[in-house]
Nucleic acid binder design. Structure first.
Lengths: 204, 204
DNA sequence: GTCTATATTTCGATAGAC
DNA sequence: GTCTATCGAAATATAGAC
């Protein structure tokens, strides 16, 4: 409300993003519950109270981090809605998703992966945390599809998580994870499309 | 030390296994850190103090649960050491692992999957928590192998985790998860063996 | 925007009676 | 083997000075 909003805003936003960055690091390494506000504050050379100026609660920090994920998921959904259905559409969708994955988003995926209980709890208490791939999955299968087909479609779209999970504790780097995720998506999409076709043959 | 040890022992062991069972359920649903000793005790109709008679600490409960996993991993390793190396050995190893997976062990895998930070911390503080597949993976690749080959072997052996993770939030059942894990292991083992062969061609 | 000081709660764990 | 009572530590969060 003063005439120096811009500069005040700037430094405020910088501190905010530093907090998010450190919090992401701790939440991945130690887990959300084992990371205290104090851990985050002290790593930034400030006190707990200062941190509460920027975020109302610890949950709000987590929610901010998680939501970074959805903008790109919606872009992918918009792209998908403009594609004609084709046998290789699932594979192309998975590849498109992998190709637009940056190292920052990969870290958010690790966060979501290593803190499933609290994220599930937030979702149940009505926070704005949507479940990731559901809308995209529904483009390929429905509730009449076999469990096999539904699961294979999910796995095809989520090979990054599978590669990430398998790479835990190793020094395998970012680009290699995406490379392997790509290969895996290709072979899994074949299995998925086969299962979907089998469903259709059975229902006709 | 009395002459009624057997009956006393019996009821003690039963309480112990009830505690482990409830703790497993809570650790999966709420996460280890968000589950209090009180949660576990009250679910069993007892107090916190009574629980401390059976387990020294909350950590000890978790460690007991995690260790249920290793007996069968060692059986698999012993079987593997008696097999001659063959191109399809990786696939057969993965299938053997999947085929001996009970629903109880699947739950322990979910536990390990949803509580990675604390399990990693226990391992670092010298508790007897070994990392799962490392010994088995080393039978197929070494540090000279490409990152691609190493990661693909890991993923081939860990398709249960991938299928489990993808099935979160759905009602897809146990047998279908194992079925899909089997199919996935087959196609991934082909990729892995291809990558290993490529390594050998390059080094010779 | 950052600080000191503190309120409030909850946790893991122990002591000791029965 | 289970209980009541309690300790001490650490957590989230707030109030108010600067």
């Amino acid at each position: 409300m003063s005439n120096s909003i811009s500069s005040e805003r700037r430094s405020g936003e910088e501190t905010r993003s530093q907090i998010l960055s450190i919090a992401l690091k701790f939440f991945i390494e130690k887990g959300y519950e084992s990371t205290s506000i104090r851990d985050i504050a002290e790593a930034l050379g400030m006190t707990k109270s200062s941190l509460y100026y920027h975020f109302r609660s610890k949950e709000e920090i987590l929610i901010n981090l998680i939501q970074l994920r959805y903008a790109q998921l919606e872009e992918l959904l918009e792209w998908l809605d403009n594609q004609p259905m084709a046998p290789d559409l699932l594979e192309r969708t998975a590849h498109r998703w992998i190709d637009c994955t940056t190292i920052e988003r990969l870290q958010v995926m690790i966060l979501a992966h290593t803190n499933q209980p609290v994220i599930l709890r937030l979702r149940e208490t009505g926070q704005d945390i949507r479940s990731g791939f559901q809308d995209i999955i529904n483009r390929f299968v429905d509730n009449n599809s076999s469990a096999e087909a539904r699961l294979l479609v999910r796995m095809t779209l989520d090979t990054i998580s599978a590669a990430l999970s398998a790479s835990r504790g190793t020094n395998i780097d970012f680009s290699e994870i995406l490379n392997v995720a790509r290969q895996t998506a290709s072979v899994l999409s074949n299995l998925a499309v086969g299962a979907i076709s089998a469903d259709h043959r059975q229902s006709s």
